[in-house]
Amino acid sequence: MSIQKLFSTALQAHRTYLFSIQAHGFKKDVSRKLMELYKRKEDIEFGKTPSPPPPRSSYLEWNYDAELYSFGKRLGEHIEPNLLAQSLTQRSFIVVEEEKQKAVGIEDPILNVQENTPLVDEGKSFTSRYVKQYLRIALPFFPEEGIQSVHNYLLTEKVIANIASHIGMNDIVQTAEYPIETSSLHSCFFALVEAIRQSNDDHTAGNFVRDFVLTQLGGKNVNDLWDIENPEDKLNTIYRNHGEELPEPRLVGASGKNTILANYRVAFYNKDKQMIGLGFGESVQIAKEMAARDALRRLFRTSERDAPIKYNLDINTSQQKKVNPSLEEWNEKILLQATG
């Protein structure tokens, strides 16, 4: 038997070993490929939608107390730890936890956290009050109907839930459902406002609402948030309130008549032949309506020429400011006297 034959297996093994150590390293692409293939299999073969990532609270590196502490610090507010935990706990979470304890055999389930239901309504009414009060001071010439519309927009579920998730509430709210619903974020945000109010005072909670809710108007046009029907009638009503002649619409420009790109420009003039509003559109009727809207915007001090809303006003919440005049009784002279 030759030496080669005798040691062939050993030599073979030796070669294999050498080969295997040459192909060293951890093949990252293998796991990535497998993950991608699994995802495609889920999508196509079973027709499932990809499952959401696991909740952050299920990770090993998760300390709820530390999360709560840093959440309060991130907002820059002092909040009582018990109130903070309560404001971020939904009723559904309590119910599920109690059921879990009962299933194990505990007769009277004990949980060291309360649900946020009592905080939500109070927080919501406070936020609503403060937002209206702030808008009335920031936009003194804007009619009350407009203030209501802007207020309604700011307190919609979509806007509030967006704020809540951007301050990091979507990870730390304790609720039964996953992924968290916008309605839960909506109510938890108001509970948080109430927790801040109870830990401090109205002024601190108000500043919190100002810094997080009212700043959502930044870069937005308040006129877009309020739909005025028949603006020409409203303009006439205001001029009747002033005791002046009704403004007169005039066609001041027309181009491309009888074409698909027709353009008309209409301006409103007051009795002193001063232009009070200018608008254009594809027909005379539309141009007239746009001109009336422009005239109203100029009267309400919300046109693009006016200064933007200030977000650094200090509001005294205890002092009740009178509501802004409604469109029907809007009078510039009275408002100018009131604002000085």
Binding site: E67, S70, G168
Partner: peptide, 16 residues
């Protein structure tokens, strides 16, 4: 700026 950060108060954007 995320969530009009800085228009009201500044908020540190890293959470963990």
């Amino acid at each position: 700026a995320p969530l009009a950060n800085g228009l009201g108060r500044y908020m540190c954007q890293v959470k963990r």
